Amino acid sequence: MKKIVVLTGAGMSAESGLSTFRSSNGLWENHRVEDVATPEGWYRNPELVLDFYNGLRRALINAEPNAGHKGLAALESNYDVYIITQNVDNLHERAGSSHVLHLHGELMKVRSVRNEKLIRELSSEECDIHLGDKAEDGEQLRPHIVWFGEAVPMIEPAIELVSKADIFVVIGTSLNVYPAAGLLNYVRPGIPVYLIDPNEVYDPSGRVTCVIRKGASEGIKELLKILHK
Rank of each mutant, 00 (worst) to 15 (best):
Val5Gly: 01
Thr8Asn: 11
Ala10Leu: 07
Ser13Trp: 01
Ala14Arg: 15
Leu18Trp: 13
Thr20Ser: 14
Phe21Tyr: 13
Arg22Cys: 12
Asn25Pro: 13
Asn25Ala: 08
Arg32Trp: 14
Val33Cys: 06
Glu34Val: 13
Ala37Lys: 06
Thr38Gly: 10
Thr38His: 09
Gly41Ala: 10
Gly41Ile: 08
Arg44Ala: 10
Pro46Gly: 12
Glu47Met: 10
Leu50Met: 08
Tyr53Trp: 13
Tyr53Asp: 01
Asn54Ile: 03
Gly55Leu: 12
Leu56Trp: 11
Ala67Arg: 05
Ala67Asn: 04
His69Ala: 06
His69Thr: 09
Lys70Cys: 04
Lys70Ser: 04
Lys70Asn: 01
Leu72Gly: 01
Ala74Asn: 13
Leu75Thr: 03
Asp80Glu: 12
Asp80Ser: 09
Ile84His: 00
Ile84Glu: 06
Asn87Val: 04
Asp89Ala: 07
Asn90Met: 04
His92Ser: 05
Glu93Ala: 04
Arg94Ile: 00
Ser97Cys: 11
Ser98Asn: 09
Val100Lys: 00
His102Ser: 00
Gly105Ile: 02
Lys109His: 05
Arg111His: 14
Ser112Pro: 15
Arg114Ile: 03
Asn115Tyr: 15
Arg120Cys: 01
Glu121Cys: 02
Leu122Gly: 02
Ser123Gly: 12
Ile129Arg: 11
Ile129Glu: 12
Asp133Lys: 06
Asp133Ile: 12
Lys134Thr: 14
Lys134Asn: 06
Gly138His: 10
Glu139Ile: 00
Arg142Asp: 07
His144Thr: 02
Trp147Leu: 03
Gly149Ile: 10
Pro153Met: 02
Pro153Ser: 03
Pro153His: 07
Glu156Ser: 07
Glu156Pro: 00
Ala158Glu: 00
Glu160Leu: 02
Val162Thr: 07
Lys164Gln: 15
Lys164Glu: 11
Lys164His: 13
Asp166Phe: 08
Ile167Ala: 02
Phe168Asp: 14
Ile171Arg: 03
Leu175Val: 03
Asn176Ser: 12
Val177Asn: 09
Ala180Ile: 10
Ala181Phe: 05
Gly182Arg: 02
Leu183Arg: 00
Leu183Trp: 10
Tyr186Trp: 05
Val187His: 12
Pro189Thr: 03
Pro189Asp: 06
Ile191Met: 06
Tyr194Thr: 09
Leu195Glu: 14
Leu195Pro: 11
Leu195Val: 06
Ile196Pro: 14
Asp197Ile: 01
Val201Tyr: 07
Arg207Ser: 15
Val208Pro: 13
Thr209Cys: 07
Cys210Ala: 08
Lys214Ile: 10
Lys214His: 09
Lys214Pro: 14
Glu218Trp: 11
Ile220Trp: 08
Leu224Cys: 12
Ile226Leu: 09
Ile226Val: 12
Leu227Ser: 04
His228Thr: 09
His228Asp: 14
Lys229Thr: 13
